[in-house]
Computed example of a mutant assay.
Amino acid sequence: MHFIRFLKVPTTTSKPSSNIITVSTLITISTDLSEAFYNGNATLRATLRADTQSRQLLASKTVTWTPGLRNIPIQFTFTASKDTATDGIVCISATENRADDMRTLFAGPSESRILSAWSTPFNILQNGSKAEAFVERKLQLSAGKMVRIWEETREDIARHIWPGGLAMTSYLSTLPTPPTGQLPSLTPLLSNPSLNVLELGAGCGLAGIVLHTLLPSTKVTVTDLPITTEITSKNLTSNSNENSNNISYCPLDWASSLPEWCASSTYDLILVADCTYNTASIPYLVGVLDELCGLSPGVVILLAHKVRHDSEEMFFEMAGEKGIEKKESVVFEMAGDRVDLYVMGR
Protein backbone atom coordinates (compact mmCIF):
# COMPACT_ATOMS: atom_id res chain seq x y z
CA MET A 1 0.00 0.00 0.00
CA HIS A 2 1.43 3.35 -1.05
CA PHE A 3 0.41 6.95 -0.48
CA ILE A 4 0.93 9.99 -2.70
CA ARG A 5 2.21 12.76 -0.43
CA PHE A 6 3.07 16.42 -0.86
CA LEU A 7 6.69 16.98 0.17
CA LYS A 8 6.25 20.63 -0.83
CA VAL A 9 2.68 21.86 -0.86
CA PRO A 10 1.37 23.48 -4.05
CA THR A 11 2.63 27.06 -4.32
CA THR A 12 1.75 29.90 -6.71
CA THR A 13 4.37 31.90 -8.59
CA SER A 14 3.40 34.95 -10.67
CA LYS A 15 5.02 38.15 -11.88
CA PRO A 16 3.59 41.66 -11.63
CA SER A 17 1.58 42.75 -14.65
CA SER A 18 1.61 39.22 -16.07
CA ASN A 19 -1.30 36.84 -16.43
CA ILE A 20 0.98 33.80 -16.70
CA ILE A 21 0.62 31.75 -13.51
CA THR A 22 2.80 28.85 -12.36
CA VAL A 23 1.81 26.41 -9.62
CA SER A 24 4.48 23.98 -8.44
CA THR A 25 4.62 21.11 -6.00
CA LEU A 26 6.92 18.23 -5.04
CA ILE A 27 5.37 14.82 -4.40
CA THR A 28 6.47 11.36 -3.41
CA ILE A 29 4.90 7.89 -3.33
CA SER A 30 5.80 6.05 -0.14
CA THR A 31 4.61 3.52 2.40
CA ASP A 32 2.69 4.38 5.58
CA LEU A 33 5.76 5.30 7.62
CA SER A 34 7.58 6.74 4.57
CA GLU A 35 10.38 4.25 5.18
CA ALA A 36 10.24 2.99 1.58
CA PHE A 37 9.38 4.54 -1.76
CA TYR A 38 7.21 2.99 -4.43
CA ASN A 39 9.46 0.70 -6.46
CA GLY A 40 7.28 0.22 -9.52
CA ASN A 41 6.17 2.08 -12.60
CA ALA A 42 3.18 4.38 -12.28
CA THR A 43 1.58 6.90 -14.59
CA LEU A 44 0.29 9.84 -12.57
CA ARG A 45 -2.32 12.35 -13.67
CA ALA A 46 -1.93 15.77 -12.07
CA THR A 47 -4.70 18.36 -12.32
CA LEU A 48 -5.24 21.91 -11.17
CA ARG A 49 -8.93 22.76 -10.91
CA ALA A 50 -10.87 25.79 -9.79
CA ASP A 51 -12.37 25.48 -6.32
CA THR A 52 -15.85 26.21 -7.62
CA GLN A 53 -18.95 24.15 -8.26
CA SER A 54 -17.96 23.72 -11.91
CA ARG A 55 -14.46 22.43 -10.93
CA GLN A 56 -13.08 24.02 -14.10
CA LEU A 57 -9.89 22.32 -15.29
CA LEU A 58 -7.18 24.99 -15.42
CA ALA A 59 -4.17 22.79 -16.19
CA SER A 60 -3.19 19.15 -16.27
CA LYS A 61 -0.22 16.97 -17.02
CA THR A 62 0.88 13.38 -16.95
CA VAL A 63 4.10 12.33 -15.23
CA THR A 64 5.77 8.95 -14.90
CA TRP A 65 7.10 7.47 -11.67
CA THR A 66 9.82 4.86 -12.18
CA PRO A 67 11.69 2.54 -9.80
CA GLY A 68 14.42 4.33 -7.87
CA LEU A 69 12.68 7.70 -7.70
CA ARG A 70 12.31 9.37 -4.30
CA ASN A 71 10.27 12.36 -5.42
CA ILE A 72 9.03 14.05 -8.55
CA PRO A 73 8.40 17.78 -9.19
CA ILE A 74 5.17 18.85 -10.86
CA GLN A 75 4.60 22.26 -12.37
CA PHE A 76 1.46 23.73 -13.94
CA THR A 77 1.43 26.85 -16.10
CA PHE A 78 -1.77 28.55 -17.21
CA THR A 79 -2.98 31.92 -18.41
CA ALA A 80 -5.33 33.67 -16.01
CA SER A 81 -8.25 35.75 -17.20
CA LYS A 82 -10.76 38.00 -15.48
CA ASP A 83 -13.02 34.96 -15.13
CA THR A 84 -10.41 32.70 -13.49
CA ALA A 85 -11.43 31.60 -10.01
CA THR A 86 -9.30 32.87 -7.16
CA ASP A 87 -8.86 29.51 -5.44
CA GLY A 88 -7.76 26.18 -6.86
CA ILE A 89 -7.04 22.60 -5.80
CA VAL A 90 -4.30 20.24 -6.97
CA CYS A 91 -5.04 16.53 -7.35
CA ILE A 92 -2.48 13.80 -8.01
CA SER A 93 -3.67 10.27 -8.76
CA ALA A 94 -2.45 7.11 -10.42
CA THR A 95 -4.15 6.25 -13.71
CA GLU A 96 -4.21 2.55 -12.72
CA ASN A 97 -4.39 0.63 -9.44
CA ARG A 98 -5.83 3.53 -7.47
CA ALA A 99 -6.58 2.74 -3.85
CA ASP A 100 -9.48 5.18 -3.47
CA ASP A 101 -12.31 2.64 -3.81
CA MET A 102 -12.56 0.78 -0.51
CA ARG A 103 -14.66 -1.95 -2.13
CA THR A 104 -11.70 -3.07 -4.26
CA LEU A 105 -8.86 -2.42 -1.82
CA PHE A 106 -8.38 -6.11 -1.05
CA ALA A 107 -5.61 -6.72 -3.58
CA GLY A 108 -3.61 -9.78 -2.66
CA PRO A 109 0.04 -9.78 -1.60
CA SER A 110 1.68 -8.50 -4.78
CA GLU A 111 -0.72 -6.17 -6.58
CA SER A 112 0.07 -2.47 -6.12
CA ARG A 113 -2.37 0.15 -4.85
CA ILE A 114 -1.73 3.91 -4.67
CA LEU A 115 -3.88 6.35 -2.69
CA SER A 116 -4.64 9.66 -4.43
CA ALA A 117 -4.01 13.09 -2.90
CA TRP A 118 -5.91 16.39 -3.00
CA SER A 119 -4.51 19.68 -1.69
CA THR A 120 -6.39 22.24 0.35
CA PRO A 121 -7.84 25.15 -1.65
CA PHE A 122 -5.35 28.01 -2.04
CA ASN A 123 -5.10 31.31 -3.90
CA ILE A 124 -3.78 30.41 -7.34
CA LEU A 125 -3.57 34.03 -8.49
CA GLN A 126 -1.49 35.50 -5.66
CA ASN A 127 2.29 35.17 -5.83
CA GLY A 128 3.63 33.09 -2.94
CA SER A 129 0.28 31.67 -1.92
CA LYS A 130 0.49 28.08 -0.63
CA ALA A 131 -1.86 25.25 0.18
CA GLU A 132 -2.06 24.31 3.85
CA ALA A 133 -0.03 21.40 5.17
CA PHE A 134 -2.88 18.90 4.77
CA VAL A 135 -3.75 16.30 2.17
CA GLU A 136 -7.28 15.07 1.49
CA ARG A 137 -8.19 11.46 0.72
CA LYS A 138 -11.54 10.76 -0.93
CA LEU A 139 -12.58 7.20 -0.17
CA GLN A 140 -15.43 5.51 -2.02
CA LEU A 141 -17.60 3.28 0.18
CA SER A 142 -20.58 1.06 -0.60
CA ALA A 143 -24.03 2.27 -1.68
CA GLY A 144 -22.59 5.34 -3.43
CA LYS A 145 -21.30 6.82 -0.20
CA MET A 146 -17.94 8.55 0.19
CA VAL A 147 -15.86 9.95 3.04
CA ARG A 148 -13.37 12.79 2.77
CA ILE A 149 -10.50 12.41 5.21
CA TRP A 150 -7.82 15.02 5.84
CA GLU A 151 -4.40 14.09 7.15
CA GLU A 152 -1.31 16.16 7.76
CA THR A 153 1.63 16.32 5.37
CA ARG A 154 4.01 16.63 8.32
CA GLU A 155 5.66 13.68 10.04
CA ASP A 156 3.40 13.51 13.11
CA ILE A 157 2.25 9.89 13.07
CA ALA A 158 -0.89 10.57 15.14
CA ARG A 159 -2.46 12.60 12.35
CA HIS A 160 -2.08 10.24 9.41
CA ILE A 161 -4.13 7.50 7.77
CA TRP A 162 -2.75 4.00 8.35
CA PRO A 163 -3.27 0.60 6.65
CA GLY A 164 -5.19 -0.77 9.65
CA GLY A 165 -7.84 1.92 9.34
CA LEU A 166 -8.05 1.40 5.58
CA ALA A 167 -8.41 -2.38 5.97
CA MET A 168 -11.17 -1.91 8.55
CA THR A 169 -12.86 0.61 6.25
CA SER A 170 -12.68 -1.79 3.31
CA TYR A 171 -14.08 -4.69 5.35
CA LEU A 172 -17.03 -2.60 6.52
CA SER A 173 -17.61 -1.29 2.97
CA THR A 174 -17.85 -4.78 1.47
CA LEU A 175 -20.33 -6.25 3.92
CA PRO A 176 -22.28 -8.53 3.71
CA THR A 177 -19.82 -10.40 1.45
CA PRO A 178 -16.28 -9.19 2.17
CA PRO A 179 -13.59 -10.80 -0.04
CA THR A 180 -11.63 -11.74 3.06
CA GLY A 181 -14.41 -13.90 4.46
CA GLN A 182 -16.66 -13.13 7.40
CA LEU A 183 -16.20 -12.12 11.00
CA PRO A 184 -19.54 -13.76 11.85
CA SER A 185 -20.25 -12.08 15.17
CA LEU A 186 -20.19 -8.63 13.57
CA THR A 187 -23.19 -9.31 11.33
CA PRO A 188 -25.94 -9.29 14.01
CA LEU A 189 -24.11 -6.59 15.95
CA LEU A 190 -24.01 -4.16 13.03
CA SER A 191 -27.72 -4.69 12.37
CA ASN A 192 -28.50 -3.10 15.75
CA PRO A 193 -29.93 0.37 14.96
CA SER A 194 -29.01 1.72 18.41
CA LEU A 195 -25.38 0.61 18.37
CA ASN A 196 -23.06 2.61 20.65
CA VAL A 197 -19.45 2.61 19.38
CA LEU A 198 -16.19 3.89 20.81
CA GLU A 199 -13.04 4.29 18.70
CA LEU A 200 -9.71 4.28 20.55
CA GLY A 201 -6.56 5.86 19.09
CA ALA A 202 -8.63 7.25 16.23
CA GLY A 203 -5.98 9.57 14.78
CA CYS A 204 -7.81 11.20 11.86
CA GLY A 205 -11.03 9.44 12.87
CA LEU A 206 -11.23 7.27 9.74
CA ALA A 207 -12.80 4.07 11.11
CA GLY A 208 -15.38 5.81 13.27
CA ILE A 209 -16.39 8.24 10.53
CA VAL A 210 -16.75 5.40 8.01
CA LEU A 211 -18.90 3.32 10.35
CA HIS A 212 -21.14 6.31 11.04
CA THR A 213 -21.39 7.08 7.30
CA LEU A 214 -22.45 3.51 6.54
CA LEU A 215 -24.75 3.23 9.59
CA PRO A 216 -25.98 6.77 10.28
CA SER A 217 -28.17 5.83 13.26
CA THR A 218 -25.15 4.43 15.09
CA LYS A 219 -23.79 6.57 17.92
CA VAL A 220 -20.01 6.89 17.53
CA THR A 221 -17.44 8.56 19.78
CA VAL A 222 -13.96 8.90 18.28
CA THR A 223 -11.11 9.45 20.73
CA ASP A 224 -7.38 10.04 20.83
CA LEU A 225 -4.84 12.30 22.50
CA PRO A 226 -5.58 16.06 22.46
CA ILE A 227 -3.00 16.61 19.68
CA THR A 228 -5.50 15.08 17.24
CA THR A 229 -8.32 17.48 18.11
CA GLU A 230 -7.77 19.78 15.11
CA ILE A 231 -7.50 17.08 12.43
CA THR A 232 -10.35 14.96 13.80
CA SER A 233 -12.65 17.95 14.17
CA LYS A 234 -11.81 18.96 10.59
CA ASN A 235 -12.79 15.50 9.38
CA LEU A 236 -16.04 15.45 11.34
CA THR A 237 -16.95 18.77 9.72
CA SER A 238 -15.99 17.52 6.23
CA ASN A 239 -18.30 14.54 6.61
CA SER A 240 -21.19 16.20 8.42
CA ASN A 241 -24.75 15.23 7.48
CA GLU A 242 -28.24 15.25 8.93
CA ASN A 243 -27.16 12.58 11.44
CA SER A 244 -24.02 14.38 12.62
CA ASN A 245 -25.36 14.62 16.18
CA ASN A 246 -24.68 10.87 16.40
CA ILE A 247 -20.90 11.24 16.06
CA SER A 248 -18.54 13.21 18.25
CA TYR A 249 -14.89 13.57 19.22
CA CYS A 250 -13.51 13.49 22.76
CA PRO A 251 -9.87 13.49 23.87
CA LEU A 252 -8.88 10.33 25.73
CA ASP A 253 -5.49 9.59 27.26
CA TRP A 254 -5.03 5.88 27.98
CA ALA A 255 -2.55 6.69 30.76
CA SER A 256 -5.20 8.61 32.72
CA SER A 257 -8.37 7.49 34.45
CA LEU A 258 -11.41 7.14 32.23
CA PRO A 259 -13.30 10.44 32.10
CA GLU A 260 -16.85 10.50 33.43
CA TRP A 261 -18.45 10.69 29.98
CA CYS A 262 -16.74 7.40 29.08
CA ALA A 263 -16.95 5.57 32.41
CA SER A 264 -20.68 6.25 32.63
CA SER A 265 -21.44 4.87 29.15
CA THR A 266 -22.11 1.34 27.94
CA TYR A 267 -20.60 0.36 24.58
CA ASP A 268 -21.52 -2.38 22.12
CA LEU A 269 -18.43 -2.11 19.89
CA ILE A 270 -14.90 -0.76 20.32
CA LEU A 271 -12.80 0.03 17.23
CA VAL A 272 -9.00 -0.20 17.50
CA ALA A 273 -7.02 0.33 14.28
CA ASP A 274 -3.21 0.40 14.11
CA CYS A 275 -2.73 1.09 17.81
CA THR A 276 -0.27 -1.65 18.78
CA TYR A 277 2.90 -0.48 16.96
CA ASN A 278 4.15 1.51 19.96
CA THR A 279 4.94 -1.10 22.60
CA ALA A 280 5.40 1.57 25.27
CA SER A 281 1.68 2.38 25.06
CA ILE A 282 0.45 -1.22 24.99
CA PRO A 283 0.04 -1.60 28.79
CA TYR A 284 -2.12 1.53 28.83
CA LEU A 285 -4.21 0.34 25.87
CA VAL A 286 -4.79 -3.03 27.53
CA GLY A 287 -5.68 -1.26 30.78
CA VAL A 288 -8.32 0.85 29.04
CA LEU A 289 -9.77 -2.16 27.23
CA ASP A 290 -9.86 -4.13 30.49
CA GLU A 291 -11.75 -1.33 32.21
CA LEU A 292 -14.16 -0.89 29.31
CA CYS A 293 -14.89 -4.63 29.15
CA GLY A 294 -15.73 -4.48 32.84
CA LEU A 295 -18.06 -1.53 32.37
CA SER A 296 -19.69 -3.00 29.23
CA PRO A 297 -20.02 -6.79 29.63
CA GLY A 298 -20.22 -8.48 26.24
CA VAL A 299 -18.68 -5.55 24.36
CA VAL A 300 -17.06 -6.57 21.06
CA ILE A 301 -13.61 -5.28 20.11
CA LEU A 302 -12.79 -4.97 16.39
CA LEU A 303 -9.02 -4.72 16.07
CA ALA A 304 -7.03 -4.01 12.88
CA HIS A 305 -3.41 -5.04 13.35
CA LYS A 306 -0.59 -4.58 10.86
CA VAL A 307 2.43 -6.49 12.17
CA ARG A 308 5.52 -4.29 12.08
CA HIS A 309 7.70 -6.07 14.62
CA ASP A 310 7.52 -9.18 16.80
CA SER A 311 7.32 -7.19 20.03
CA GLU A 312 3.72 -6.21 19.17
CA GLU A 313 2.69 -9.73 20.21
CA MET A 314 2.99 -8.28 23.70
CA PHE A 315 -0.47 -6.74 23.20
CA PHE A 316 -2.18 -10.10 22.75
CA GLU A 317 -0.27 -11.62 25.68
CA MET A 318 -1.24 -8.81 28.04
CA ALA A 319 -4.83 -8.75 26.77
CA GLY A 320 -5.07 -12.51 27.32
CA GLU A 321 -3.97 -12.06 30.91
CA LYS A 322 -7.02 -9.82 31.35
CA GLY A 323 -9.29 -12.41 29.76
CA ILE A 324 -9.57 -10.52 26.45
CA GLU A 325 -9.10 -13.12 23.74
CA LYS A 326 -9.12 -13.41 19.96
CA LYS A 327 -12.45 -14.91 18.92
CA GLU A 328 -12.50 -14.51 15.11
CA SER A 329 -10.00 -13.33 12.53
CA VAL A 330 -9.50 -12.69 8.83
CA VAL A 331 -6.38 -11.73 6.90
CA PHE A 332 -6.57 -8.61 4.76
CA GLU A 333 -3.95 -8.50 1.98
CA MET A 334 -3.56 -4.96 0.75
CA ALA A 335 -0.91 -4.52 -1.92
CA GLY A 336 1.95 -5.91 0.10
CA ASP A 337 0.55 -4.85 3.48
CA ARG A 338 -0.95 -7.61 5.57
CA VAL A 339 -3.48 -6.45 8.12
CA ASP A 340 -5.06 -8.95 10.52
CA LEU A 341 -8.63 -8.13 11.54
CA TYR A 342 -9.69 -9.62 14.87
CA VAL A 343 -12.90 -9.79 16.82
CA MET A 344 -11.86 -9.85 20.48
CA GLY A 345 -13.63 -9.87 23.80
CA ARG A 346 -14.21 -11.76 27.01
Rank of each mutant, 00 (worst) to 15 (best):
T266W: 01
T13V: 13
P73C: 08
S24H: 14
K145N: 14
L115D: 07
S240H: 08
S191Q: 13
F122C: 06
S248V: 02
N241S: 10
S257V: 01
G203L: 07
T180F: 08
P121E: 15
L33D: 11
D274A: 09
L141T: 02
V210D: 03
T62Y: 03
V220N: 08
L172G: 15
S311G: 11
T95L: 05
A143Q: 12
E260K: 15
S30A: 01
T266N: 05
F315L: 14
N278M: 00
D274Q: 09
A143G: 09
I29P: 01
P73N: 09
I161L: 06
G88R: 03
T187Q: 15
L58W: 08
S112T: 05
G323V: 07
P73L: 03
P121N: 15
A167Q: 14
M168L: 14
T31K: 12
E230Q: 13
S191W: 03
T62D: 03
L125V: 00
H160G: 06
L7K: 01
R148P: 12
N71M: 06
K327T: 04
F78K: 09
T276H: 11
D101V: 10
S30K: 01
P251Y: 02
L295Q: 04
W162I: 04
T276A: 15
V299G: 06
H309K: 08
T86Y: 06
L183M: 10
T187M: 15
P178T: 05
N245W: 00
R98W: 01
T177I: 02
L139V: 07
G40Q: 09
I124A: 10
N39K: 15
G298H: 04
N245E: 01
N246T: 08
L303D: 04
F106G: 15
V299R: 07
E313T: 12
P297F: 00
E155I: 05
P179M: 02
G108I: 00
F76Q: 15
A107R: 13
D274K: 08
L33N: 12
R308Y: 08
